[in-house]
Write a protein that binds this DNA or RNA. Structure first.
Length: 465
RNA sequence: GCCCCCUUAGCUCAUCGGUAGAGCAGCCGGCUUUUAACCGGUUGAGGGAGGUUCGAUUCCUCCAGGGGGCACCA
């Protein structure tokens, strides 16, 4: 049923198909509402019109059956456009009952595990996931229009690098070796920069062997984009455009999401009932300034006393942490969650960012920003490190942490080092957690509400009744 | 991994230390303009395993799944 043809003029012969959502059998006549992706339509079976044999089939219809109906458009006494049936085709029989027709499917677990039931019983849910698709399309359109090349790179990798996380491991039987599911896209996209592509991106799944939480799914969708010769200002502008274009693609927030007032501005989102303004330009703040404002600690001056400073704030940090890691810890515990309106936090400690260029004025910091909004990280970007000597040293530092028992520290990726030894142009790189972006834009508090099929613990297999 | 909460029929909800109740769906019957159609009848249940008790769905313990929070991250 096409929306335009959903209400054709009376008397017209039509052929419609859809799932039976309501049945009102009343002796020798029967009304039903059938539904497809676009619309709901009433059909009307009369035994004297359709014939006794066909009407016997009507009697046997169940909610959930998918039927085709040939008939003429008419209007009922109440004026509802209705297809008065001349013929019925049972396209498929539903063997299982539909969720309760009035309340719909309420049980959250069933909604996650059996999304098809959630979707078929809820118009709103179908629209919700179409919105996700629209946002991903918007991200692609921004990048495509700027000449970025969309590429696909390996998910199965001998070394899972490009981030700090425990990878999923699997086994390649014919070679009898263990391989890992990627935890980031980064290192392959940079190899493509070496290869001469100047703007590349990938939107794809990455996998991290971590626990489940309302904000974590073991597999999630990451956007990574790399632009040769771009600096951090370029990446900030790109990030802003990606976020605002996504919001526009989504359309205005719904009034029932809370907030100050109903509003048709798609850049005004609502998160947990509070307004969030996504109007560019977003604020830019240095991490050390944010930490100084919040705690009085001047991290640059007190670099070697940061452990004591953290202790004085009641921020617990492991004794072996580097000063930069302590600064990051203070920032994350005291500042990050307090940032509501979108803010680019710039200049991260070098020792927690092994793949970024150091700032020219202070080698303890790197050219990196994270976009924070509603207290959460939305995007992460840096000027990519293209000095192979520095890169090797940083990998070696990671490897030492790994040897010391840090399962999230990646091993040295010699193949990647060899690539950038050929020469990688200076470049800006950006990563966006697409599911998190969706959560922010739609106000979802659980990541499972933006994933069609969220990862669930397996249930014991129950026999079919 | 830790803490708190939840789990009653296919679905949506009640009740309760003493034979577990309803609506929808299902089944049987009636009804040729219904709209959560209606009317009559009817099938079906307390996540699993232990314990306390004369008696447990209810109280306790453990297990499983889910929700929320913490931790980690995106």
């Amino acid at each position: 049923m096409d929306p335009e043809s959903a209400q054709p003029p009376e008397g017209e012969r039509v052929s419609v198909a859809g799932r039976v959502m309501q049945l009102r059998l009343q002796g020798k006549a029967c009304f039903a509402h059938i539904e497809d992706e676009s619309a709901r339509m009433q059909v009307w079976f009369k035994s004297d019109r359709i014939g006794d044999d066909a009407y016997e089939v009507v009697r046997l219809l169940d909610l959930g059956d998918i039927i085709g109906v040939d008939g003429v458009v008419t209007r009922t006494r109440r004026g509802e456009p209705t297809v008065l049936a001349d013929a019925l085709t049972l396209l498929v029989k539903s063997l299982r009952p539909l969720p309760e027709k009035w309340h719909g499917l309420q049980d959250q677990e069933t909604r996650y595990r059996k999304r098809y039931l959630d979707l078929l019983s809820s118009d709103a849910q179908r629209r919700h996931f179409m919105a996700r698709s629209a946002v991903v399309r918007a991200l692609r359109s921004v990048l495509d229009s700027r000449g970025f090349l969309e590429v696909e790179t390996p998910l199965l990798q001998p070394i899972a690098g490009g981030g700090s996380a425990v990878p999923f491991m699997t086994h390649w039987n014919s070679l009898d070796i263990d391989v890992f599911l990627r935890i980031a896209i980064e290192l392959h996209l940079k190899r493509l920069l070496v290869g001469g592509y100047e703007r590349v991106y990938e939107i794809g799944r990455v996998f991290r062997n971590e626990g489940l939480s309302p904000r974590h799914n073991p597999e999630f969708t990451m956007l990574e984009a790399y632009q040769a010769y771009a600096n951090l200002d370029d990446m900030r502008e790109l990030t802003e455009t990606l976020v605002t274009t996504s919001a526009m693609a989504l359309g205005p927030a719904h009034p029932e999401d809370g907030g100050s007032a109903p509003c048709d501005d798609p850049l005004l989102r609502r998160v947990g009932g509070t307004d969030l303004h996504l109007h560019p330009p977003f604020a830019v703040r240095r991490m050390v300034d944010l930490v100084r404002d919040a705690t009085g600690i001047d991290a640059v001056a007190a670099w070697d006393e940061l452990h004591d400073a953290a202790h004085g704030l009641g921020v617990e940090v492991a004794a072996q942490l580097s000063p930069g890691a302590v600064l990051l810890e203070i920032y994350e515990q005291r500042v990050e969650h307090t940032i509501w309106e979108p803010t680019f936090v710039v200049e991260y400690p070098a020792d927690v960012t092994p793949l970024a260029r150091r700032t020219p004025h202070d080698p303890r910091f790197v050219e990196r920003f994270e976009l924070i909004a509603a207290g959460r990280e939305l995007a992460n970007a840096f000027s990519e490190l293209n000095d192979p000597v520095d890169q090797r040293q940083r990998f070696e530092e990671q490897a030492r942490r790994r040897a010391a028992g840090d399962a999230e520290a990646p091993p040295i990726d010699e193949d990647f080092l060899e690539a950038i030894e050929v020469g990688m142009p200076p470049a800006g790189g950006l990563g966006v957690g697409v599911d998190r972006l969706l959560m922010l834009l739609t106000g979802a508090s659980n990541i499972r509400d933006v994933l069609l099929f969220p990862t669930m613990r397996p249930q014991r297999q129950e026999p079919m009744q």
